[in-house]
Simulated assay, not measured.
Amino acid sequence: MPALVSARRTTPGAHAAGVRGRTLGARWAAFAFIAPTCLYVLVFYVYPLAGNLRMGFQDYTVKSFYTGVAPFVGWDNYRAVWQDPAFGGTVLNTVLFTAGSLAVQFAAGLALAMFFHRRFALNGVLRSLLLVPWLLPLVVSGTAWRWILETDSGVLNQTLGHPVPWLASTDLALLSVTLVNIWVGIPFNMVILYGGLQGIPAQLYEAAGLDGANAWQRFTRITLPLLRPVTVVVLTLGLIYTLKVFDVIMVLTQGGPADSSQTLTTFSYDLSFQQLAFGRGAAVGNILIVVAVVFAFVYLRATRDAEGRR
């Protein structure tokens, strides 16, 4: 019996070694779980991003794909993009497309969020159905709207009774793609703002009602101020998403007619795969990346400030 008791005893050193072994094993297990995700991010995000940043400073041609050689040209690609006659109009289209989409998406999303914030029959079912445009692939949404907006056989023109060149007119093409993008983005705004409304205590509205505040005063003095952190998040994410919209525009108009609906994303595609100016196309992509990163920092700071106020 004494021998058995002594055999079961462990020294402090052996115990510490066992703890270190278990800790090391847990670390390796954690690394094994996150390794596939890290590998995925490196291969499909970091490597292409680094390649695009490098390509923006090179004279990259079709020959470079075979030889792997592309001369370093510094800022020449960016100067060429800046001096391109189409660049100014493309930037203006991007600003109008982004600003119009954000403003209407937010207003409509907030209105729907407030509507569904009330209790009524089939509330959950209707909210689920409104998510369909956001859940559909953008190519599918763009194709469906192209059928609707076709000049000769489109459903909308047949309903109106006369042909309107929604996608073929230089005056209407940008408006058309903006409206389609608004339709796609409204559900996202509604969901986020609806969650924000859920976090506002009902007692505040009851107290304001007792004090004689009308609906507009409750909206401007309670709802909007308390939704400010959520509003910043929605607008920042919406800006980032809208800046990189490509599928909808390419399916509907391909940036035409006469570059009237061209944005920076389609302009980058046109430079790279239509004009085969890969360096300039990469430069436009890098400009978009910088803008998106700036607003990503705004988003992170806004979410951090919102968490700090809780």
Rank of each mutant, 00 (worst) to 15 (best):
V46W: 06
G124C: 08
A144H: 06
V293D: 00
W216M: 12
N181I: 01
R221C: 09
V291H: 05
A144N: 13
V248W: 03
L156I: 01
V232R: 14
Y78P: 04
A70K: 08
Q254E: 09
I240Q: 06
E150R: 04
L129K: 09
V290K: 10
A258C: 12
D171T: 14
I148N: 15
S6A: 14
S261T: 10
A306T: 00
F295V: 04
I240M: 06
V191Q: 09
A292N: 02
L149Q: 06
A277W: 07
D84I: 02
T11L: 14
V284E: 02
Q58R: 07
Q203W: 10
R310G: 12
Y66S: 13
L271I: 13
K63H: 12
A113D: 01
F106E: 04
L130F: 12
P257K: 04
L39I: 09
R79C: 09
P12Y: 00
G196Q: 00
G88H: 03
F267L: 12
Q105R: 14
G196V: 02
V234E: 00
V251T: 02
P165Q: 15
V95M: 00
F72T: 15
M114G: 15
T303V: 15
N214S: 03
L4E: 10
G279N: 05
M114S: 12
L179K: 02
K63W: 12
R280P: 04
A50G: 14
Y60S: 02
G154D: 06
G109M: 12
L102Q: 01
W183P: 07
L149F: 12
P137T: 13
L197D: 03
T266K: 15
L224F: 10
S128N: 11
L122T: 11
S260M: 01
T266V: 14
V248H: 09
G142D: 01
V73S: 09
F267M: 04
G238N: 06
A215C: 10
L224K: 09
Y45K: 14
T253Q: 00
G238F: 00
L130Y: 06
D76I: 14
V46H: 02
F246L: 04
V233P: 02
